[in-house]
Amino acid sequence: MKATKVYKRIKRYRFIYLMLLPVVAYFLVFSYYPLALGIFNSFRQVKILGGSKFIGLENYHNIIKNPLYLRALSNSIIVGAGTFALQFLWGLTIAILLNEIKSKIVKSAIQTATFIPYLLSWAVVGGLWITILSPTGMINGFLKIIQGDSFRPIVFMSEPAFAREIMIFTGAWKGAGYYAALFLAAIVTIDQNIYEAASIDGASRWKQIIHITIPNIASTMKVVALLAAMGVLRNFDQIFMMANSSILDKVQNLLYLIYNDGIIQFKIGPATAAATLVLLATMIISFTVRRLLRYDDSYRD
């Protein structure tokens, strides 16, 4: 009985499925088939010119017993979580403050300026910040003005103590404008009557921001958090551009390690095994974040 009912529904939606067809075909060919092949390779010793052989879990075993991967995982998560937190606050600040600005031109100018870093690739952003943080760069110049001539420039990029903070800051710098746009988009859809009612009740504008604006964009915040969780282990370009040997211990992350140990040395098996583990870890992290946010509960109709 049930089967025919489902069949009926499927039949009803047949045009809808047709609309999905190109997407499914694309993902099967360009995402899932390569994925399956990649996972297949992760159980093999692959020679670059062919001639691979099955070696079971050896690739995985080598990764798990290598302490560098654990360190890289924790680096990934620390830098990723820090970047997310800062970028989140930074973007939220921009969005809320921009919403208070009346002048359309000023608003648009600030929004554009804060969005520009998002348009640039890491190759550009990394180089820019390395220059700014160099001994002769802007930050040291600024510190010199404050501290006088006896000041000895700090080589920020070679200080392990600053390494993660720099990655977090530059990561947030690049993405804050993007988050700001997302939050602002949510803010403008909030019903203005709520604000007016609160205003009549004597709530100050600041109170309104805390008690109306922020709760009303909570759903956007959750999506942003979830998307960030899905991307947290995929940060490669930033570290590749900005790391150097003095700070590598603090910032080397998973994809960097895969690149260094796998791709550069043409080792396909270990690289795909490590990447499979990254995929698994991403799924676990996303799932956990979803749970923590009670993501599904709050939105079930």
Binding site: I130, P135, T136, V155, M157, S158, N244, S246
Partner: peptide
């Protein structure tokens, strides 16, 4: 020694 030599 140029301190930037650590990162240059």
């Amino acid at each position: 020694l140029d301190p930037a030599s650590f990162v240059d």
